[in-house]
């Protein structure tokens, strides 16, 4: 059993739907760099999009996405950055769909943890990574 930390990659984007494409591209690029299966790569894109979508309506200016890559897993940490502005927050965002979004993430990732301060999600996918 080895879980050596290999790399950390960070990306900070404005908390707006238009920037989710960049997050998806980064996911694809990183997955490709790590030599992951196409299916795993697509799962990451899907999970990252859902996780960011989950945080978009909380009222933060920015979202930070961080990839923790170790020899046996890839963890994706998505958090809000800075103070949450209640005026920007969209309380009426459809709770049911949000719930389904979370369930969707859970069904493509191995671990999903909700963090509170700052609000965010940590998604883990177990997969062997070769550090070459």
């Amino acid at each position: 059993m080895s879980d050596t930390k290999l790399w950390n990659i960070q990306l900070r984007v404005p908390a707006e739907p238009e920037f989710l494409g960049i997050v998806r591209l980064a996911c694809a690029g990183i997955a490709h760099r790590l030599g992951l299966d196409h299916e795993v790569s697509e799962d990451f894109k899907l999970a990252a999009t859902e996780a960011c979508g989950h945080l978009l309506n909380l009222g933060s200016q920015e979202i930070e996405i961080s990839w923790d890559i170790s020899s046996d897993s890839v963890a994706l940490q998505v958090t809000t950055v800075g103070e949450l502005d209640a005026e920007l927050a969209d309380d009426e965002a459809d709770l049911e769909w949000k719930e389904i979004g979370l369930l969707l993430i859970k069904s493509v990732m191995d671990e999903v943890l909700e963090t509170t301060s700052p609000p965010g999600l940590r998604l883990v996918k177990k997969t062997e990574i070769n550090d070459d």
């Binding site: 719930e99 389904i100 369930l103 859970k106 069904s107």
Partner: peptide
């Protein structure tokens, strides 16, 4: 039901 059905549906698609 949605909590139960979502992983089942996604599982089938995957």
């Amino acid at each position: 039901f949605t909590t139960y059905a979502t992983p089942t549906i996604v599982g089938e698609i995957k």
